[in-house]
Design a binder for these strands. Structure first.
Length: 243
DNA sequence: TCCCAGGGGCCGA
DNA sequence: TCGGCCCATGGG
């Protein structure tokens, strides 16, 4: 079994299913937690509204913590603006005000409007190349939308994925997005559920242990991670050093 | 007060 | 093609 598959097995065994992508309208329903994560079902999203909400979340979460995105989504909902048509109709400054908590709100308001125009025309036949031509949609956001909203098999490469695999020693600093995506996609089964879950598991690991300042001592992957081994060595050497 | 967070566009070299 | 800079709020 290859290392990338092994890492998936370790993470899923310990962390269990993460239930991505969270959908606000599902909060506290049967089998769904208070934040909208559907841990036991991969059959979401079910409706056009749910699909569009995931797309909005993927754009709003660009370089932003999910908590700040949740506030923006709640605001949009309370203003009856979490739909394609209302985003198209809404004044851009008003839209920016509603999503202010997610940061970069002026840029993101424009991004939502550009995406909404695309969505209306392409929702029934969406293609990655065309999605990438939309202003404000880069490879990560495109793949999040394709994978989580449209259940298409594109592995999402984000900051956490890069950081974790770089530290483990499975990729180089200079690897491109597409090269990295191919590396992972060629190492695991082409399966929507696995792509969905693996990315979510990496985010959990990145948030909890493989942070900017890593907490290697409690990391599930410390036995296979070159960064963790090196940091242990550094710690040991520093302790042995006479002051 | 500083750092960081589920990126992407633009511009000059 | 690539590095540097800008966009911005909120929590720890």
């Amino acid at each position: 079994m290859n290392s990338i598959r092994k890492i998936y097995n370790i993470l899923i065994k310990e962390f269990k299913e993460q239930g991505w992508w969270p959908i606000s309208s599902l909060k506290n329903k049967e089998g769904i937690d208070e934040n909208g994560y559907h841990h036991k079902s991969y059959y979401y999203p079910e409706t056009d509204e749910q699909i569009f909400e995931i797309c909005v979340g993927a754009i709003l979460t660009q370089n932003t913590s999910w908590k700040n995105v949740e506030k923006a989504i709640t605001n949009l909902k309370q203003n009856n603006s979490l739909s394609v048509n209302s985003i198209l109709e809404l004044n851009q400054n008003k839209l920016a005000e509603l999503i202010k908590s997610s940061g970069y709100h002026n840029q993101k308001a424009r991004k939502l409007k550009e995406f909404a125009k695309f969505y209306i025309k392409n929702k029934n036949n969406i293609h990655r190349e065309e999605l990438l031509r939309v202003w404000g949609i880069g490879p990560e956001t495109a793949d999040s939308i394709l994978l989580y909203a449209f259940r298409k098999e594109y592995f999402v490469i984000d900051t956490y994925t890069k950081r974790i695999f770089l530290r483990i020693g499975l990729c180089s600093q200079k690897i491109s997005y597409n090269e990295f995506q191919s590396l992972i996609q060629n190492s695991i089964k082409k399966d929507y559920k696995i792509y969905n879950e693996y990315h979510a598991l990496l985010v959990k690991l990145g948030k909890e242990t493989c942070k900017t300042k890593p907490l290697c001592f409690k990391c599930l992957l410390k036995s296979t991670c070159s960064f963790s081994k090196n940091s242990k060595l550094l710690l040991k050497n520093s302790k042995n050093r006479k002051v």
